[in-house]
């Protein structure tokens, strides 16, 4: 059982994480650390921890910064365990986290990945009384889908790396990461990609129990929004969607289509044709939304075709997207090429 930890300028938070790793009821067989060329005291902290840790610590420091997702790709390529847990530098794991998630994978061999909810804490580690899933507006999706279908991961980011444990074959299927993940127009983080592939070549289970304290602070990569911020973002997205043709949005859909098509290809290689076909439908949905066509009848037909085929997510977000696309389709102006 391996823990893959990626670090960058994390000296402020790292000690608490490392302490919580060493206090796990089920200790990992190795801690694989990939530091992304930190210039603060992160590496020194890790080296000191390695000297006294109750498990081997395998540290590699990148000569220059590569960014979060490629850094995790490097770390995952080095793990040797049958199960792989991902760690972020700023969280605090509860003592039973690994035992609970690994036990779940041991008990049910069909599972390729399990991920949990988390308690939200502030910068100083004080509980906020909120949970990660609620903070990201995904709780209703995950409570409804204890087994999360791959198409849902293709449509939304639902899992956070530090809450998950994956079976090794899911990691193998996800590596190497496709270059499209790093496309600045529509980046896909390592944890969403890993969950997407794990669901495409296996079964992913969402566990509604909080198994760690997730720190919310300004420097972190995966932000959690306050309810007012979340509402404001959704409103802004709705206004932007209704505002008319946006070349950037078309490119975003093109990139998303490539990413999802790549996941479908991985599923095909593993012989998971059912999941591959499902993902191709989602990729096709993004392709259609990237280019609705030039005339009103053509655009309307394409949007309606996607509604009829179930291309839009069956949620408020999906209904809003369909309505926005239909509104755009009915606008008389020709669509400008991106």
């Amino acid at each position: 059982m391996s823990v893959a930890l990626c670090t960058y300028q994390g000296e402020a938070w790292l000690p608490e994480l490392l302490e919580s790793l060493a206090a796990q009821e089920l200790l990992p067989d190795e801690l694989v650390v990939q530091d992304d060329a930190s210039t603060d005291g992160t590496v020194a902290l890790l080296e000191a921890f390695a000297a006294s840790a109750p498990f081997p610590v395998r540290l590699v420091v990148n000569p220059e910064r590569v960014g979060s997702t490629p850094n995790f790709e490097r770390a995952l390529a080095r793990v040797e365990g049958r199960y792989v847990a991902l760690a972020d530098q700023d969280d605090i794991w509860y003592p039973h986290k690994l035992a609970r998630l690994v036990g779940m994978l041991e008990d049910d061999p069909i599972l390729t990945l399990a991920f949990s909810d988390a308690d939200l804490v502030d910068e100083r580690g004080r509980p906020t009384g909120r949970r990660l899933w609620s903070g990201r507006g995904i709780r209703h999706h995950l409570v409804a889908h204890e087994i999360v279908p791959c198409a849902l991961f293709a449509r939304r980011s639902l899992s956070t790396g530090c809450t998950m444990v994956a079976r090794r074959r899911a990691v193998e299927a996800a590596l190497p990461f496709p270059t499209s993940l790093d496309d600045p127009q529509a980046p896909m983080r390592h944890d969403r990609w890993l969950s997407l592939v794990a669901a495409a070549v296996g079964t992913v289970r969402a566990v509604p129990e909080p198994l760690l304290a997730f720190r919310s602070h300004p420097e972190q990569q995966t932000g959690v929004l306050e309810p007012a911020q979340l509402r404001s973002r959704l409103a802004a997205a709705a206004v932007a969607a209704l505002a008319g043709d946006d070349p950037a949005r078309a490119v975003e859909h093109e990139v998303r289509a490539q990413q999802v098509a790549e996941a479908a290809h991985r599923a095909d290689l593993w012989g998971d044709f059912e999941e591959a076909d499902e993902l191709r439908r989602v990729a096709r949905h993004h392709e259609v939304r990237a280019d609705l066509g030039d005339t009103i009848p053509e655009r309307t037909r394409r949007v309606w075709g996607q509604v009829a085929d179930g291309g839009y997510d069956r949620s408020a977000m999906g209904v809003a997207s369909a309505a926005a696309d239909l509104a755009r389709a009915l606008r008389p102006a020709r669509r400008t090429a991106p």
């Binding site: 069909i110 409804a144 889908h145 204890e146 087994i147 079964t203």
Partner: peptide, 9 residues
């Protein structure tokens, strides 16, 4: 029921 790998709703 045999499709527990896909659905436990």
């Amino acid at each position: 029921y045999g499709r527990l790998h896909l659905d436990r709703q």
